[in-house]
Each structure stands twice: as C-alpha cells, then as structure tokens.
C-alpha cells in the first residue's frame, strides 16, 4: 500500500514542480541508517525520484512548514492524518501562511517502531490512534484504507490508566526513575509541532529542572497537543513522555464559560 502511494506522490510532486504551482516539495527520503527515512526538501523533478514513503516514515513534516511558508514560493507537503492535525493547530496559531502551502493528505496504516534498524511492531502512538481524517488538505492520495485502529474507546488510554491506578508514592518513584534519565537534549521539544516559541522559557541547566521541564512543557501543550507521539519516539533515553500529554488529553475539557 505505501508503495502505491509513494508512486503517486512522486508523480504528483513532479507535476506540480513542472507546472510551477510549487517551488519545492517536502517529504521523506532514505536516511543514513536502514529503515530510518529523513524529512527532505525536493526542488526539482529529478530529485523527486528520491521521495520515499513507507511504514518507517514517522517524522512529522508539519513543523518544517513554519519556516517553509515564510520563504518565497509555495511548498507541496505530504501529510499523514496526525500531521494534518498538527498543521491545522499551527495554522490556528498563525505560524503557517496557508496560501504558501499545498497539502496532500496521504493514506496511513500506522508507523512501525525501529530499534537498531529492525522492525519492532506498531508505534505505541499509532496503536491507539483514531485519526483517519484530514482537517486541512487540498488533495488526497491513497486514503481509502485508513482505518487500522487497533484499540478504541477508553482502552486507548490504557497506558495512562495503568499509571493512575498505582498509589501516589509508586507513581512518584515511577517518574523519578524515568525523569532522572533525562539529559535535557531537548529533542522532544524540538520535534514537537506545537512547541514553536521563539525563545523557550525553559532554557537552562538546573539539575532538578529536568522534572519541571517535562511537567511544564506537557502543560503548555494542554489543549494543543495533537497526540502524534513524536516526543516519546525521539527521546534517546526512552522516557515515555507521551504518557504526560495523554494524561492531559484524557481529561481535557475546554473552558466552559458557564456556571
């Protein structure tokens, strides 16, 4: 399935570059490591031959559009459902010049986790994903088979409830062990689509600040996080950061201006 979509992506990209409708294309290409494709810009039709779409294409492309739509010319970008949610949020937050973006929604069956170049089953965030639609897009490719939700209903937050069901001290210990591993590499912040502040209020090196960094960062995403799971995926220390965001998502209630 991804192979067919890949073919269509390449041909559509070539078409749009040739006609001048766009000046560059944002998608993935094979990376340095096996099964680890990287986001890339493609500026001419020949380059489009390198466009790669497979089940290892996990990195969000939406965040690159902030800078891309500031440049002259239009960018064609291929977005999976979760990525269109992220882009929609960025548009809402005035970070994207919508006219400079041409968005093609692409079909997604869920991404696969990779460890040392080998497949390790569906990514946790894909396992519980219910996003099969494209809140913002101009066109669709290969979206007929998007339903692959494995887990539905309240089971989707099973990871969160498992932690909730332990007692307070156990929870504290659980997070102390995990957060002590944090090296403040900031990868989670850098990959997060809704983390786009010019200057991060949490810059700094204080030792216990690692804990506050994650509490505050998760909290800043309250109501904005699109549950893409990238933060946990990119953490080099394997901290399940998405649990914090999902806890907030699970209980999120918009502000009700009513008694």
């Amino acid at each position: 399935m991804p192979q067919e979509i890949n073919k269509k992506m390449r041909s559509r990209a070539r078409e749009m570059l040739a006609s001048g409708e766009v000046t560059q294309v944002l998608a993935w290409e094979a990376g340095e490591f096996p099964n680890y494709p990287a986001p890339a810009f493609f500026k001419d039709e020949t380059a489009c031959g390198r466009i790669l779409y497979d089940r290892f294409c996990t990195a969000n492309l939406s965040k690159f559009m902030i800078e891309a739509t500031r440049q002259t010319g239009r960018t064609l970008v291929f977005l999976r459902p979760c990525d269109t949610y992220a882009l929609a949020q960025l548009i809402k937050e005035n970070q994207i010049n919508r006219e400079k973006a041409y968005i093609i929604g692409i079909g997604c069956e869920g991404n696969v986790a990779v460890n040392e170049g080998e497949e390790r089953g569906l990514l946790e965030s894909c396992r519980v994903c219910v996003k099969t639609d494209y809140p913002v897009c101009d066109e669709l490719i290969g979206t007929e088979n998007n339903s692959r939700t494995v887990v539905t209903g309240s089971e989707r937050f099973e990871g969160v409830t498992r932690v909730e069901e332990t007692d307070t001290s156990a929870r504290y210990d659980f997070w102390q062990v995990l957060l002590s591993r944090c090296i403040r590499c900031n990868a989670c912040r850098n990959i997060c689509p809704t983390c786009h502040c010019k200057v991060c209020i949490l810059e700094g090196e204080n030792p216990l600040e690692k804990q506050f960094f994650h509490i505050i960062r998760a909290y800043h995403q309250n109501g904005r996080c699109t549950d893409c799971g990238q933060c946990a995926r990119v953490c080099p220390q394997g901290i399940p950061l998405q649990l914090l965001n999902r806890k907030l998502i699970k209980e999120y209630k918009p502000v009700e201006v009513q008694p």
């Binding site: 932690v163 102390q176 509490i215 998760a218 806890k247 907030l248 209980e251």
Partner: peptide, 12 residues
C-alpha cells in the same frame, strides 16, 4: 483541574 491532575499523576 488539568494541572492538579497532572501533578497527581506524577506522584504529588
């Protein structure tokens, strides 16, 4: 409500 829930989740 969100914040207190999150802090409790983290063991406060």
């Amino acid at each position: 409500e969100s914040l207190f829930g999150l802090l409790a989740f983290m063991g406060m």
